[in-house]
Design a protein around this nucleic acid. Sequence first.
DNA 1: CTGAAAGCGCTAACAT
DNA 2: ATGTTAGCGCTTTCAG
Lengths: 345, 345
Amino acid sequence: MEQSAPPRRITIVDVAEHANVSTTTVSKVLRNAYGVSPAMQAKVRKSMSDLGYRPHAAARGLRGRTYTIGLMLPDIRNPFFPEIIDGANEVLDATDYQILLGPARNVREIEHRVTEAMIDRSMDGLILIVPAATPTELEQTARAVPVVVVARHLRSTLLDTVVTDDVAGAALVVDHLADLGHRRIAHIAHAESQRHLVTTMPNTIRAEGYRQAMRARGLGDEIDVVATTYSKEGGYLGARQLLARSRRPTAIFAGADIAAMGALEAIADAGLSVPGDISVVGYDNTDFAALGGIGLTSVEQGGRQMGSDAARLLLERIDDRAKPSRLISLSPTLVVRRSSAPPPR
Amino acid sequence: MEQSAPPRRITIVDVAEHANVSTTTVSKVLRNAYGVSPAMQAKVRKSMSDLGYRPHAAARGLRGRTYTIGLMLPDIRNPFFPEIIDGANEVLDATDYQILLGPARNVREIEHRVTEAMIDRSMDGLILIVPAATPTELEQTARAVPVVVVARHLRSTLLDTVVTDDVAGAALVVDHLADLGHRRIAHIAHAESQRHLVTTMPNTIRAEGYRQAMRARGLGDEIDVVATTYSKEGGYLGARQLLARSRRPTAIFAGADIAAMGALEAIADAGLSVPGDISVVGYDNTDFAALGGIGLTSVEQGGRQMGSDAARLLLERIDDRAKPSRLISLSPTLVVRRSSAPPPR
DNA sequence: CTGAAAGCGCTAACAT
DNA sequence: ATGTTAGCGCTTTCAG
């Protein structure tokens, strides 16, 4: 009942009084700024902990930094993104920066709203995971705040980028399956609604990589792509279409593990076995792929690495907005498990 | 190359000049505050859109609100949480509030750090999903900022709560399996490391509900709980232990769908079939449970509902911090699918 | 109904 | 090496 009024926050002024110094000195200690004697340092720090002082990030932001990094991701249901986030946290944990997540729920408008919200809250930098925005929009954002884009194949002087070589990743899959003797290798893709994004989105590049690799193996006539979405439902529906073909594929390459999950369901529902009747290969090598009975062959992108690289690039750009932009491209590897084997007969 | 200096932000002052009014008026329009004539309203709004003005949330926060709501969740890998988040967004989308997520990575210290970070960024309110903090700590937090706790069985005058009846949920499962003829019904629980939290955490209450229900059905002697974690790995390990029993259970009740997933893997690895050899029931009714081949019987908690209720409670508390606290308790239901059937023979 | 002016907690020139 | 002081963009008394 005693709805005790929220006790007034301890401010820099309280600390200054307690330590008998000026607020400037306290501020300097706070920022580890140059020009404070060790003695002062200690005295001020003592006052801070005595009083239980915590800097007010929002207020700091009005002049300097908020020590906040915004991470936009398309949705929170895709198990690949946590890897990236873990990677980013790995480097940020050691700093004063705090990550806050903004999921875009796979809607362009929401992505836009979230991104603006982050800027309006004066975050120090943004990590954008597979954003659906146009390159122009992204550069616009990058003009307002340091930005690192993850998993979009674009290059700009205004922002840094971290990607994996999706063409190579798709080729790994096709080559692996072709080496096993498969010819009818189908691909479940994520449909791209934005026409101008075709050259920069990982899903379209993965599909294109699949086509190239098929041709390179002399399997151009067997190219078979169904475009749904990278989701359990998408994989399920895609696989159902493929299984209904008169000449059924002997192998399915799903553009994402989460879609492979759906495909596995559809295959089971159809009374077929993996890999006996049909091989399945995923992409992302999420922990689900590794687990027990499934044993999904999948492409490892190095999500943690992408995340930590992104965080590092961002920190460096925050410290020096003028530094030349960088593009980090990681090479994928294939992790072979039980879901891929030679075709039947 | 033209590292054009980030164009200065449009502020309330620019708008005021453009509209030939004072900043006060602009501020009032911004907040829909009382005492501005319709004419003024229109004029100011026009200037705002002409200039592309966007309020600086961080600056607003220094005096009033930031229109930001922080949502802390234990981890982003559990597929149940997105439901809650969707529910919360459902009500918040219509407002000026923006949700930002802070994952705690299942570590108490990180949860604490995240929560403080949200307060320091002067968020207007916090939604805490299954926090691991003690009731005292939670009340402490609630003194600093409006708080709604989701999925902890606690009652406090300082904060609002949304829960489901976990005792009833566990009973639904036990009764269903017992009705099918099962006697050796085992439970995979999430171990509680914090002793004092035993009475308020959903996992412990679910386990206790299981015990009660078993006794009520005269199956007290068959009670069998393995405590691992609510995760794929936890379910896998738990099921392996259970399958190794000399008298193997004929049914497994996993405290969360994600653990049930692991259990299903372990059962498949052991060469057993579901539900032929063993029945499996989950909790949370995540979309994974519904999908295709799996068809997992599971307890529906109404995650979306929990999320939207939480958001509503929070908005109301933000508007009136003195209003009496409320506890919303939802009743779970059982969704029966193919993974549960009568025991063998 | 509208405006002037004093902060919110902190940083960054600019003194001293 | 330390202190004074003017803002950052906005809200909010308090006058008019």
